[in-house]
Design a binder for these strands. Structure first.
Length: 876
DNA sequence: ACCGCCGGGTGCC
DNA sequence: ACCGCCGGGTGCC
C-alpha cells in the first residue's frame, strides 16, 4: 500500500487519504496492489547460519549488530560466495559454503532480500552465528520456502501481524517529527557587523545553532563512547575511528522566516575556526599599518581563507612580529569546544560557499545579499550561470560565494562525466536552497549534488518531507549522516520499521532528524512570544446562486453523471471506473465555474477494447487539461509534459522515455507492468483553437459575476488593495481575463505553463509598489511551487474548491507571510446546491478525520470510504 | 577450533 | 588391518 504523508501546515494521513490523492494514485489503488518499494517486503522468516573466516578480515561486529550480505559471484573459490560486511562496509567473513549455495540462489534470482543480524557477537576468532532474515514479495514466498526446506534448512517464521494499536501513538509522534526540535539549541548569536539587517530573535537562534552545527565536535547522541570504541546505539556497531560527524544540517523553518538572511549571516560570521569571514580592518590594520604602512581604503577587509592571515604571517615574519598575533586581534571569541573542531582532514584553503537554488530564487539571493550585507563590505559573489560562465576552478575557489542552479550543476556534471568545475573546487560549504528538490535520489541533480566536495553541508527547505519518509533519505545522504547515507542501513533501521509501525523505528527516526534539523513554523514561539507576528487572516464563504439557465444545464449534466455513477455503485465498480467518475466530477465542477470550461465530450458507447482505451485516454486528457495535479510515479514530482501510456497511466515524458530507453523491448509501465512503447505514448494536447473559440463567443457566468462585483466593490472602497484570484482551471483564468479587461483592471497572470523567467518577471511586477502596477494576479492553484512571495496581495479569491485543502492553504500562505502588512481576507466562492457544496462538506469531514487519530482503518475500509465519498458528492 | 575433518601411525589384553 | 582407534595437523570463500 502506498502511503502518503503530508507535513507542515497540511494535514497528515497515515495511508491513502482520498483528499490528498491524485488521479494516478486512485487508479493505482484500483488495480492489483504493487509493491513498488523494494525496501518494504514481507518477512518470510529467518534461519540461523554461520559466518566463517573471521580471522582473515578486520571488520568487527558487536552483539545485535546488523550486517549486510553481499554476493561475490567472481570469488575464485566458490561462485556462490556470500560476503558478510559490517555497517561500515568492512568485510567480516563469509557465509558458510553450504548455506551460501542457498543464499546465492535466492539472491541471484531476486526471490528475497537477505539481511543478517549477529545475535551473540564474536565469541571466537574463527566463526560466529548470524540470523538471516528473508524479505520479499508475497508471491515469492513459496519459492523461497521451497528453496530453503529443500536444502534441509529450517525456516523459522518471523513475527506476524501489525501493530495497529500503536498507530495513534505513532501518528502523533510522526506528526511531531519536525516539531519541538529546539530544546537544546536555544542559544542566540549576533551576526557580524557586516550584516546590516538586525536579526530577529529566532534568526539569532538559528545562526547560533548553525554555527554550533558547523563547529562543534560533539557527536550525535546515538553515538556512545565505550572504552576506546565509538558505539552506535541504533545499529549496535562500533568503530575505532571517531565517526565523521555531520557539519551542517537541515534548516527547515517555514518559508518567510528568513532562512536566506540567516544563511548569509552564517557565511559572514562563521569562517574557519569560528571566526568571521569579514572583520573590520581596524582590527587588522593595527599591526599591519605599524609594520608595513598598509592602508585599506574600505575600512573593511574580507579574509580570504588563509590568504590574509598568511600574508600577515609573512609580514610578521618580515617585521619580527610573533606569529599568530593577528589572530589574537580577532573580535570573535573562540570557545574551546569550537577550537576542537579544526579537523586535520579539513582543507584549510577551502574558502568559498556554493549556493545551489532553483532558478526562480536566484535573483532573490542577489537581492537579499544587496539588502543585508553592508555596502562597504566587498564580498566576492559569483553567479555561475549562463553560457559565458567562468569555469576556471581557481577563480571559483577564490570567491566567497558562488551561486548557481540545480540545472546548471547537473548539466555540467553530466557533460563532464563527474569532473565539472563545481565538482573540482574544494568548497568550504555547500548550501542547497529549497533542498527538497533533491528528494528523489535518482535524478541527475541529486547525483550531482552528492558528488560535491565540501566540508560543511546545509539544506534549506520549508517542506522537509513532502510525500513520505523516502523523501528524507536523500537529505540524510547529502548530509552524510553515517551510516544512514547507505540505503541498506536507512531502510533497515528507519524506513521499514517506521512503515511497518514499529515504535523504536520511529524513535530512531526522531533521534536522527532531531540531531540535524532546526524547524520553526509561523506559529512557533520563542520564549513564549510568537516568532513573527502576522496580521489576521479570515475566511468567508460566498454562496453563488446559479441563473435559471445555468441551473438547467447543470442539472442535466448532474442527472446524467448520477445515472452513470449509481450504476458503478450498484455494480461495485466505482474504483475500476475511477477515471470516468473523476471526469464526471470535473465536468460538474467546471459547470459551477463557467460553462465554457467544458471540453468537447464524446458520449458514444464504447464496445471494443481499443475504443474503451481511447475513451479512457480521453477522460484522462480531460482531467489533466484542467490543471489537476498529477504525480509522476517515476520522479514522484508533479507531472511535467504529461504523456499517457497505452495502459492509461500518466508520467512526465522525459521520465517515461528514460524507462523505455533503458529497458528497450522489455519496457513495462512502472505502475501496472503492462508493456509500453514510445510510439504509443499519448501527449496531452494544448487545444489552442478551442481557446480562441471560447473567447469569441463570450458569455458570463454567475461565479464570474460574483467575483467581478467583489472586485469592483473592493476597488471603489480602497484601490490600493491587491488580490489573488485563484482557480484550478487555467482556462477559467483565461475566461476571467475578459471581464477584468472590460472593467479596466490592471492584472497579471501566473500559471504552470510559464517559464521561470517569465514567472519571476510577473511576481516582481505584482510585488512592485510602482504606480500603475497590477492590482490583481490570476493564479493557478499549483503554480509557482514553494517559495514565491506574493505579500503585496491581502485578498484571496478562491474560485473553486480544491480536493486538497492543503493546496489552498499553501496558496493563501503566499500572501499571508512575513512582510504582509494588512489583514488577509479569503473569499471562497461556492455554488449553492452543487458538488462544490458537497466537496466543502467532505473537506471538513476529512479534516476532522485527520485531526482525530487515524485509527484502525485497513485498506478495504479505506476503499469503501472513497466510494462513500463519491456517493456523498453525487447525493446517491 | 574446548570443534569436525583429514590422513598417517598403529594394532590382544 | 581392504578394519577401528588414537592423536597430530589443520582450518573461509
Amino acid at each position: 500500500m502506498q502511503s502518503r504523508r503530508w507535513f507542515g501546515g497540511a494535514g497528515f494521513s497515515f495511508a491513502d487519504d482520498p483528499v490528498t490523492e491524485t488521479l494516478s494514485q486512485a487508479i493505482r489503488g484500483t488495480g492489483e496492489e504493487l509493491d513498488r518499494e523494494p525496501d518494504t517486503g514481507v518477512l518470510f522468516g529467518s534461519l540461523r547460519g554461520s559466518v566463517v573466516g573471521l580471522r582473515y578480515y578486520t571488520g568487527v561486529v558487536n552483539k545485535g549488530e546488523m550486517v549486510s550480505l553481499v554476493r561475490q559471484p567472481q570469488n575464485p573459490y566458490d561462485r556462490n560466495a556470500v560476503m558478510v560486511a559490517n555497517v561500515y562496509g568492512s568485510q567480516v567473513g563469509h557465509i558458510k559454503r553450504e548455506l551460501a549455495v542457498l543464499l546465492a540462489n535466492i539472491m541471484d534470482n531476486n526471490l528475497a532480500r537477505v539481511e543478517g543480524v549477529v545475535p551473540f557477537g564474536v565469541t571466537n576468532q574463527f566463526t560466529m552465528s548470524v540470523v538471516l532474515s528473508f524479505w520479499g514479495r508475497e508471491e515469492n514466498r513459496d519459492a523461497v520456502v521451497r528453496q530453503i526446506t529443500s536444502r534441509s534448512f529450517k525456516l523459522q517464521s518471523g513475527p506476524t501481524g501489525t501493530h495497529t494499536h500503536m498507530l495513534t501513538q505513532l501518528k502523533n509522534a510522526f506528526d511531531n517529527l519536525f516539531e519541538n526540535l529546539m530544546e537544546d539549541k536555544i542559544g542566540e548569536r549576533e551576526a557580524v557587523e557586516a550584516v546590516c539587517t538586525p536579526l530577529l530573535p529566532h534568526q539569532k537562534q538559528a545562526l547560533s545553532w548553525m554555527c554550533v552545527s558547523e563547529n562543534n565536535a560533539a557527536l550525535p547522541h546515538f553515538w556512545e563512547v565505550k572504552g576506546k570504541l565509538f558505539y552506535n546505539t541504533l545499529t549496535h556497531s562500533s568503530v575505532r575511528e571517531r565517526p565523521q560527524r555531520v557539519r551542517g544540517g537541515i534548516l527547515a523553518d517555514d518559508m518567510g522566516l528568513g532562512k536566506t538572511l540567516t544563511t548569509i549571516a552564517l557565511i559572514l560570521s562563521n569562517f574557519h575556526h569560528g571566526k568571521p569571514l569579514c572583520e573590520p580592518v581596524s582590527d587588522l590594520k593595527h599591526s599591519l599599518r605599524a609594520t608595513l604602512g598598509f592602508a585599506c581604503k574600505t575600512g573593511w577587509c574580507v579574509c580570504l581563507g588563509g590568504a590574509v592571515l598568511e600574508d600577515l604571517d609573512f609580514a610578521a615574519a618580515l617585521s619580527g612580529i610573533t606569529q599568530g598575533a593577528p589572530q589574537k586581534k580577532s573580535k570573535s571569541v573562540v570557545s574551546p569546544v569550537e577550537a576542537a573542531s579544526s579537523q586535520s582532514t579539513d582543507d584549510p584553503a577551502a574558502r568559498a560557499t556554493l549556493i545551489i537554488c532553483p532558478l526562480s530564487v536566484l535573483s532573490n539571493w542577489l537581492d537579499q545579499l544587496d539588502q543585508h550585507v553592508r555596502a562597504d563590505v566587498k564580498l566576492n559573489v559569483y553567479l555561475y550561470y549562463g553560457s559565458e560562465r567562468n569555469r576556471d576552478t581557481h577563480f571559483l575557489s577564490s570567491q566567497h560565494m558562488v551561486l548557481t542552479t540545480y540545472n546548471v550543476l547537473s548539466a555540467d556534471y553530466s557533460v563532464s562525466g563527474g569532473a565539472s568545475p563545481l565538482h573540482t573546487v574544494s568548497w568550504l560549504r555547500v548550501v542547497l536552497d529549497e533542498g527538497h528538490i533533491i528528494r528523489n535520489p535518482n535524478t541527475q541533480q541529486s547525483k550531482a549534488v552528492l558528488k560535491l566536495n565540501t566540508q560543511r553541508r546545509w539544506i534549506l527547505t520549508g517542506t522537509p518531507i513532502q510525500n513520505n519518509l523516502r523523501d528524507l533519505w536523500m537529505l540524510v545522504a547529502f548530509l552524510r549522516l553515517k551510516p544512514f547515507d547507505v540505503r541498506e542501513w536507512w531502510n533497515r533501521v528507519i524506513q521499514r520499521p517506521v512503515t511497518q509501525g514499529d515504535k523504536t523505528g520511529l524513535q530512531n527516526l526522531q533521534a536522527l532528524v532531531k540531531c540535524v534539523t532546526l524547524r520553526r513554523t509561523k506559529t512557533s514561539r520563542v520564549c513564549g512570544r510568537p516568532l513573527v507576528s502576522l496580521p489576521e487572516r479570515s475566511v468567508r464563504i460566498e454562496e453563488v446562486e446559479l441563473t435559471q439557465k445555468e441551473r438547467e444545464e447543470y442539472e442535466l449534466a448532474h442527472t446524467e453523471g448520477r445515472t452513470t455513477i449509481s450504476r458503478y455503485v450498484a455494480e461495485g465498480t466505482v474504483l475500476r471506473n475511477y477515471a470516468d467518475v473523476l471526469a464526471i466530477l470535473v465536468r460538474l465542477r467546471q459547470f459551477c465555474c463557467h460553462p465554457g470550461l467544458l471540453g468537447k465530450t464524446t458520449t458514444h458507447t464504447a464496445v471494443t477494447p481499443a475504443e474503451l482505451r481511447e475513451r479512457l485516454i480521453m477522460k484522462l486528457r480531460l482531467v489533466l487539461g484542467t490543471g489537476s495535479d498529477e504525480e509522476c510515479a517515476v520522479c514522484l514530482d508533479s507531472v511535467r509534459l504529461p504523456v499517457i501510456t497505452h495502459c492509461a497511466h500518466v508520467y512526465c515524458r522525459p521520465c517515461i522515455a528514460e524507462v523505455i530507453r533503458s529497458e528497450q523491448e522489455q519496457a513495462r509501465c512502472p505502475l501496472c507492468r503492462g508493456q509500453i512503447k514510445a510510439s504509443e505514448l499519448v501527449e496531452f494536447p494544448l487545444e489552442e483553437e478551442e481557446e480562441s473559440n471560447l473567447l469569441e463567443n463570450w458569455r458570463s457566468s454567475s461565479k464570474v459575476e460574483a467575483l467581478m462585483s467583489s472586485l469592483l466593490r473592493l476597488r471603489s472602497e480602497d484601490d490600493s488593495i491587491r488580490s489573488l484570484v485563484v482557480s484550478q482551471f487555467t482556462r477559467f483564468l483565461t475566461i476571467l481575463e475578459i471581464p477584468l479587461r472590460e472593467e479596466g483592471f490592471k492584472f497579471v497572470r501566473l500559471d504552470g505553463t510559464m517559464s521561470q523567467k517569465r514567472r519571476a518577471q510577473v511576481i516582481q511586477e505584482f510585488q512592485s509598489d510602482a504606480p500603475g502596477s497590477p492590482l490583481i494576479m490570476l493564479l493557478s492553484l499549483k503554480a509557482g511551487g514553494v517559495g514565491i512571495n506574493l505579500s503585496a496581495a491581502s485578498r484571496v479569491f478562491l474560485m473553486d474548491p480544491a480536493w486538497n485543502p492543503a493546496a489552498e492553504d499553501q496558496c493563501v500562505d503566499r500572501c499571508h507571510r512575513l512582510g504582509q502588512k494588512r489583514d488577509v481576507v479569503i473569499t471562497k466562492f461556492i455554488v449553492k446546491g452543487s458538488v462544490e457544496e458537497n466537496m466543502v462538506k467532505i473537506q471538513r469531514q476529512k479534516q476532522d478525520l485527520v485531526e482525530k487519530a487515524f485509527g484502525t482503518k485497513n485498506p478495504s475500509e479505506r476503499k469503501t470510504s472513497r466510494v462513500d465519498e463519491i456517493r456523498a458528492l453525487m447525493e446517491l
